[in-house]
């Protein structure tokens, strides 16, 4: 069922704070909700494919709910994990004692790393705080805890900022290489790579750096 909510600022219109209540921070905002109005999931992006994938996954989750056989329970947990409806730690707990395939173990571990990456970046407001997160990510990297999932762009982008701050060209180059791999699989990151390459050029040749205003624009600042 399709529901369109209009924030009108008309004083007599009800539910004028519904957007923020449902997790929205800007317009447009798209979510799937149950009949009670509980948010179930949000499409990853504004494409038909993304809408259909989310819709299909939610239907699959609905079909799996209530089933008690191990295969269904496991499938439900992984479906919820994929949709962001369950934290990796909770999934791990639910799956303890279950027999998992090597691929499922890898997916769970990847989700644990994603959650760790996201938790470190939560509530970061200042540049100094972000640079500190970059150091945290470098510690994760040293321990081999490198995300390959949804948080990978944020992970490498944040480390790149820290590398730039430390004038560590080699580390920044590594970030560019990783972002190129991400962009090869997801073209939405092509512009990020382009901006990072400009920053790298500036790091290697500060004299040839673009004027500050242009650099800020390229860096999204």
């Amino acid at each position: 069922m399709l529901f369109c909510h209009i924030t009108s600022q008309v004083s007599t219109d009800p539910y004028q704070k519904l957007l923020s209540e449902k997790g929205g921070r800007g317009f447009p905002h798209l979510v799937f909700m149950d009949a009670e109005g509980t948010v179930l999931a949000s499409p990853a992006d504004r494409t038909v494919a993304s809408f259909m994938k989310t819709n299909t996954e939610l239907k699959r989750i609905a079909d799996l709910q209530g089933k008690t056989d191990p295969a269904s329970v496991t499938a439900l947990v992984f479906a919820k994990l994929d949709m962001g409806m369950m934290k990796a730690a909770d999934a791990k707990e639910k799956l303890s004692g279950m027999t998992l395939t090597p691929a499922q173990v890898a997916t769970l571990e990847s989700a644990m790393i994603d959650d760790e990456v996201n938790a470190a970046r939560a509530n970061v407001r200042t540049r100094d705080e972000m640079l500190a997160v970059g150091d945290t990510y470098l510690e994760m990297k040293a321990k081999g805890r490198v995300p390959t999932g949804k948080s990978a762009p944020m992970f490498w982008g944040t480390i790149a900022t820290t590398a730039e701050s430390k004038k560590d060209v080699a580390l920044f180059e590594e970030c560019v290489t990783q972002m190129k791999k991400i962009a090869a699989a997801d073209p939405r990151y092509a512009r990020s790579v382009e901006a990072m390459e400009t920053r790298l050029k500036s790091m290697k040749d500060p004299k040839g750096a673009p004027p500050e205003k242009q650099a800020k624009r390229l860096n999204g600042g």
């Binding site: 069922m1 399709l2 369109c4 909510h5 798209l30 799937f32 109005g37 809408f51």
Partner: peptide, 25 residues
């Protein structure tokens, strides 16, 4: 398209369907 939140939820309950919500201003 439902534009009334109460009616949309009521209909979703009746039909057993999920709501796909589009927030605009």
């Amino acid at each position: 398209w439902f534009t009334d939140y109460d009616k949309a939820r009521e209909e979703a309950k009746k039909t057993g369907k999920l709501l796909f919500a589009y927030f605009t201003r």
